[in-house]
Amino acid sequence: MVMNDKVQPRARAEASVPSPRRRFLKDAASVAGGAGLLALGAGMYARQASALPATAIRPPGALAEDDFLAACVRCGLCVRDCPYKTLKLAELGDGVVTGTPYFEARDIPCEMCEDIPCVLACPTGALDRSLTDIGKAKMGLAVLIDQENCLNFLGLRCDVCYRVCPVIDKAITLERMHNPRSDRHAMLLPTVHSEYCTGCGKCEKGCVLPGESAIKVLPIKLAQGSKAEHYLRGWEEKKAAGQSLIGDQVELPVRGLEDKAYGDTRVKPGEGPQGPEYRPASPGAGGLDSGWKP
């Protein structure tokens, strides 16, 4: 038989060895062990290195990170079709899984192309084509992270992050607040709304601060707390039901404010429980003036 012809030379060679089967098992075990160790090392390294740095943002339509790492073949076709050179492939040592696409908003933000070419370029579905409206992208969530240096929080009218936002007045609004420092001005605080923010990073890029920006796009997981499902928001429940769920509330009188409408606690100097002679204490000589005015 042909089979016998093939086998014979090997069989002859192994005849001198005590037990060919035992030797084969031993060889196979050591080879498999070595290969297994190598693969195990690669696998563990993969698990350990899979955490994405907070400033690295995935392209629009990217699957959740775990699924993304199963789907992305690191071909860079999304990078090639990005007209603004926003996307780049991670190099070994970048902190992002090597070969996968990402961008850094402070560097080049996403311009939110209407036809989303990066998503169309992806051959594997790591970027999900069910995203057809770039306004629905959730690449991350902008957070005004440094309120100490944000110019608007200092009472100035910078507003740049608000002005450059492609979803202006929805994703970022300016909320007017009283400025307690000057006591006579308003502060217009840029406020991000997660429902509309796509995480494009134009605000982070636009922030006028010289180095790091005060507003940053972060992964949604880092930027957003989970909703307190057990806490019923009374005002929402009341709106939905058309009436208060706990019935009308008992109105209790407030001492000194008996003649005012319920809930109106505003007092003029000389009014209030202390009587007409009362004056607030002024900082005495040697006392510390915090500068705070109520």
Partner: peptide, 11 residues
């Protein structure tokens, strides 16, 4: 299969 990712492509 075990890690649910392209583990070998890391290296």
């Amino acid at each position: 299969a075990a890690t649910g990712s392209l583990a070998w492509e890391w290296v």
